[in-house]
Computed example of a mutant assay.
Amino acid sequence: MLKLQHIRKQFDEKVVLEDISLEIGTGEIVSLLGPSGSGKTTLLGIILGLTDMDQGEILFNGNDISRVPMNKRGFNIVFQDYALFPNLNAYDNIVYGLRNKKGISKEEVQETIDFLELGPHLKKRISELSGGQKQRVALARTLVTKPKILLLDEPLSALDGVIKESIKQRIQSIAREFKLTTIIVTHDPEEALTLSDKILIINQGQIAQYGTPQDIIQQPADAFVEQFIIRQLQIKRQNIYQLFGAAHA
């Protein structure tokens, strides 16, 4: 569905991304994982069309969209801070993006509201919502526009505990229910491992490893991947092996 070929991006004298190539299938959840400054947010911006690349191609369903502007790609993003309008209630935030968009019925909007269980909160102002409710409103606002690809920038970073687990389940349900390819930026290995179908680990602008969570846990590509996943963020090896059933746990 989405194919990146030899993506390169440089800011001034600094090469931020070098030779990034991968394929993402329809309905897959893919996390872009790496330490701060690794280039993952820049890559998300290039996919969205917000950031120009210096070299490479982006193919969507076989069509080259490398020079297609952001508003013509049909992708949509939920930003880390939700970017909700505080002067509007939850419902008006959800339908805000539909003002100039035709073909979306009230019934379809209501289906999304029901799917995310936002009915009781529609008349609340944004300041009256919890973190999890704000995240669901942001997701609903994006989903009602029927994006071809859903992009999420650190969607769980402001959440914790039960709320974080609930939103993780929502994201997985959205991808499955709508067969919606979903690309997530995260710095949290545990989040990526438990949420994604595949993980792209970026180290200093280059691909360190791209594979399923099981592949990465059982066969880390190099010392960086193993250290970043297992040691650096203090995820217990035994717990992760048990989670994915590694033979050598």
Rank of each mutant, 00 (worst) to 15 (best):
I217Y: 14
A192C: 08
L159V: 05
T181I: 07
Q209H: 10
I149W: 02
L143R: 09
T194F: 13
T186V: 09
D215T: 06
S196W: 02
D197R: 05
V225P: 12
E226W: 06
V162W: 01
R176F: 10
Q219D: 12
Q204S: 13
L195D: 06
A192K: 09
V225G: 11
Q219K: 15
I202P: 04
Q214Y: 15
S173K: 15
A192Q: 12
P220C: 08
D215P: 05
K168P: 03
L200C: 07
T186E: 10
I207H: 08
D197Q: 03
I171C: 00
P147E: 00
I183W: 00
H187R: 04
L195G: 03
I149V: 13
T145Q: 04
P155Q: 03
F224A: 12
E154N: 08
I171E: 00
I217T: 08
E191Y: 13
I207S: 02
Y210T: 00
Q206N: 12
I217V: 15
K168V: 04
P189M: 01
I149M: 01
L150R: 10
E165W: 07
Y210V: 00
D222W: 09
L143Y: 13
I171K: 00
A192F: 14
L195V: 09
G211H: 04
F224R: 12
Q227L: 07
G211P: 02
I167T: 02
V162Y: 04
Q206V: 14
V162T: 06
E190K: 14
H187D: 11
A221I: 06
E177W: 13
I202G: 03
Q204M: 13
Q172M: 10
G161F: 04
E226Y: 06
K148N: 04
T212Y: 12
L200K: 00
T182V: 07
L180N: 12
I201D: 02
I171P: 00
D222C: 12
A208K: 14
I216N: 02
I167L: 01
T194K: 15
I202L: 15
D160I: 06
T186Y: 11
Q206M: 15
I216K: 04
Q172S: 09
Q218L: 10
L200P: 01
G161N: 10
A192Y: 14
P220D: 13
K146Q: 11
N203W: 10
E177T: 15
D222G: 14
T145N: 02
P147K: 01
Q206E: 14
Q214R: 14
L180D: 01
G211E: 07
D197F: 01
V162S: 05
D153M: 12
R176D: 14
D188T: 09
H187K: 04
L152T: 03
G211S: 04
T182I: 05
F228G: 08
T182H: 01
D197G: 06
I163C: 03
I163A: 11
I174L: 03
T182C: 03
S166D: 13
G205Q: 05
L180P: 09
F228R: 12
